[in-house]
């Protein structure tokens, strides 16, 4: 019986990928905290995880000109704009730095939790391979 490393890690690596994407989006929000007209965005983890599990291959369209837009199948599907907490900030920007910072922190913690789970799996496998850690 062959040992499948894919099955060992399970869906954890997909979860980590989605968390990375979410951190990317939030870091973009924080970088644009003073950009006029910028609207804060976020990833719906549920939807993103579903599409990550269903479409493994990232199908993207061929670009023949530098001005072409990249038409990936699942690139923008899960991205949504955040519902603003205050009606008008004066310059059309609705990034709430506190909210974004907390979201970034939370995603980072969850990412680390995911890492620890994977680490535990590796440790278990190591133990099994070295016949009980001797």
């Amino acid at each position: 019986m062959a040992i499948s490393l894919d099955k060992l890690v399970g869906t954890h690596h997909q979860a980590l990928q989605v968390r990375t994407q979410r951190m990317e989006v939030i870091s973009g929000n924080l970088a644009n905290a003073n950009t006029p007209g910028y609207k804060a965005r976020d990833i719906d983890f549920n939807k993103a995880m579903k599409s990550a599990q269903s479409t493994q291959a990232n199908s993207s369209m061929v670009k023949t000109h530098e001005k072409h837009m990249s038409g990936g199948m699942r690139s923008q599907a899960e991205l949504d704009f955040r519902i603003p907490t205050q009606p008008d900030t004066g310059d059309g920007n609705n990034v709430d730095v506190q909210v974004e910072r907390n979201a970034f922190l939370e995603t980072g913690m969850r990412y680390q939790a995911g890492l620890m789970l994977i680490d535990g799996k590796f440790k278990g496998m190591k133990k099994a391979l070295s016949s009980g850690g001797q």
Binding site: E24, A31, P36, M69, S75
Partner: peptide
């Protein structure tokens, strides 16, 4: 004058947008 770097984001297939 700040503006979101949307072109670059769509080129690099990233989800986050720089400034």
């Amino acid at each position: 004058v700040f503006a979101a770097a949307l072109d670059q984001a769509s080129q690099d297939q990233t989800k986050g947008v720089g400034v």
